[in-house]
Simulated scan of single mutants.
Amino acid sequence: MTTDLTAFAHGIFDAQPFSKFLGAELTDVGPDSAEIRVRVRPELLQQHGFVHGGVLSYLADNALTFAGGLALGGDALTAEYKVNYAKPATGEVVIARARALVTTRRQAVCQCSIYAVSPEGEERLVAVAQGTIVTAGGRAQES
């Protein structure tokens, strides 16, 4: 992992207000991969005490987009993604690990696994996702 790639990825991540709101951390990046973590706290749980599906969906979306964006070499957007919730997420931390499987000039098909981490550090697969990430065409913002 190069310093330039890491700095580039962290610059984008640090500019995301919603990621800051959730307390998310970009913990690892590669040329076609990303890892994002969220520490579980009471505000992120649903009525049964499990991590809310919206938090897991956020992790999938953002990790997929980072992996695809890095593989595409720059600014990227999610065109579509699907999440399969496999088990209830409980624990201290949830982690999304994504990687680009197939990359063309304009899009990357990416896969993500989401794990819940117990207090003892044991990781348990709780959701999987797949998505298509597309180049943003260099536009910083749309009205």
Rank of each mutant, 00 (worst) to 15 (best):
M1G: 12
T2I: 04
T3A: 11
T3Q: 14
L5R: 12
A7P: 04
G11P: 13
F13D: 03
F13P: 07
Q16N: 11
Q16M: 15
E25Q: 15
D28W: 09
P31F: 00
D32F: 00
E35A: 14
R37Q: 11
P42W: 06
L45W: 01
Q47D: 11
Q47N: 09
Q47R: 07
H48V: 05
G49A: 07
F50A: 14
V51M: 00
G53M: 09
G54I: 13
L56P: 00
D61Y: 01
N62R: 13
F66W: 11
L70P: 13
L72D: 02
G73I: 04
G73H: 02
G74L: 09
L77V: 15
A79Q: 04
E80A: 12
K82C: 00
V83H: 03
K87F: 10
K87R: 15
A89T: 09
A89R: 03
G91N: 04
E92V: 15
L101V: 08
T103H: 06
T103R: 12
T104K: 11
R105L: 04
R106H: 12
V109C: 00
Q111K: 13
V117I: 10
E122S: 06
E123L: 02
E123N: 03
L125V: 12
A129H: 13
G131M: 07
G131H: 10
G137D: 02
G138S: 12
A140Y: 08
Q141I: 12
